[in-house]
């Protein structure tokens, strides 16, 4: 009995220490959505229970290891105790109640997280190897950046053009797969203005690790301004565009801009600003001048000339581009060096 009391006190001490320890570090990224509060609350509650059970088992084992060692020279056996039905029933029923309680709580939270609201902002998200496209059907806007207003519930309707992807912004906490041939749904209310990233969470092939898209959460009025700045209405048919305009459109549609920037910033791939005509250091140590020929090869066979300091992850899949589209893209790239 004495041992039992000491061990029980130790369990409580260790539980408290673990909880304090976990409380002193940042376990999860900053929270930026209303739905995430349910997740974080639930996770914290789980951690408390986990800490207690962990301490319970570990302390009793370690205490036994220290106290109940066999003394040197002792060859006798321990006490002959086969079991205790009351105890077994106790440690069946109590955990059953606890987990079922968590189940009910989780179900209630789930219905909060999936609840609809009248004034939802609808965003249609299309995943593709290896990028994301966002459409705001109510505004006729199409973008490779996900702009969201703060404090308004967003209904993401997700699909994919090729394989399964998963739409995840860690700061928003919850994720949802984007499945070809299907529309899936996810509701999120952003609460913190700032820059985030969509990170594809389902293995989707070659450049899965680089399947990002920028996310910007802004105040509602800034969001309105952004919407108005975007091209509204139906896009001009390709034949009415100049090659440079057509190239800009393609770069957007084909998801090039999820890896390349046009403002000089470095994303997954090198920026396109000032690329044309510059000297390109290659991975094999050589340098080449980025002429038209180089750009074509870079798009059609990206692995053949890998730019120094960058991973060889640009999809080698753009051979389906027509000659006219390729020329437009190259023209657009050239225009970024004027």
């Amino acid at each position: 009995m004495k041992h039992f009391v000491i061990a029980s006190v130790l369990v409580i001490v260790v539980t408290v220490l673990i909880i304090l320890g976990l409380g002193s570090i940042d376990l999860v990224p900053n929270l930026a959505s209303a739905e995430g509060e349910y997740v974080d609350l639930m996770f914290r509650a789980q951690l408390y229970v986990i800490s207690f059970i962990f301490a319970l088992i570990i302390v009793f084992i370690l205490y036994s290891v220290v106290v109940f060692r066999r003394k040197p020279g002792d060859t006798s056996d321990g006490p002959h105790i086969r079991g205790n039905t009351t105890l077994e029933i106790t440690w069946t029923v109590i955990p059953l109640i606890v987990v079922m309680g968590f189940g009910v709580w989780g179900a209630l939270h789930l219905s909060e997280i999936t609840a609809q609201e009248p004034n939802e902002l609808v965003v249609e998200v299309t995943g593709f190897q290896f990028g994301w496209r966002f459409e705001y059907p109510d505004y006729g806007v199409n973008s490779s950046e996900l702009y969201l207003p703060r404090d308004r519930k967003v209904l993401f309707r997700l699909t994919s053009t090729d394989v399964i992807h998963s739409f995840w912004i860690p700061e928003f906490r919850i994720k949802q797969d984007a499945v070809p041939g299907l529309w899936t749904e996810l509701r999120v209310t952003p609460t913190q203005p700032g820059d985030y990233r969509v990170r594809c969470a389902e293995l989707c092939g070659y450049a899965h690790s680089a399947m990002y898209a920028p996310v910007v959460v802004v105040e509602p009025d800034e969001f309105q301004a952004w919407l108005e700045g975007q091209e509204v209405g139906t896009p001009t048919p390709p034949e009415d565009l100049t090659p440079v305009e057509r190239g800009a459109q393609l770069a957007e549609q084909q998801g090039c801009l999820s890896c390349h920037s046009i403002d000089g910033s470095t994303q997954v791939g090198p920026t396109w600003l000032g690329l044309y005509g510059s000297e390109r250091p290659l991975e094999d140590g050589s340098t080449v001048v980025a002429d038209e020929e180089y750009l074509r090869t870079a798009i059609l066979d990206p692995g053949s000339q890998v730019v120094q300091g960058f991973p060889n992850i640009m999809p080698p899949a753009y051979t389906f581009l027509s000659d006219e589209e390729l020329a437009a893209l190259v023209a657009y790239l050239e225009s970024l060096s004027d």
């Binding site: 997740v39 789980q46 986990i50 968590f102 989780g106 997280i113 919850i174």
Partner: peptide, 15 residues
Amino acid sequence: PPNGIVTTDLFLHDT
């Protein structure tokens, strides 16, 4: 259990 409870799994899944 955190993976078994839907809400926390929506965060933890595939990480």
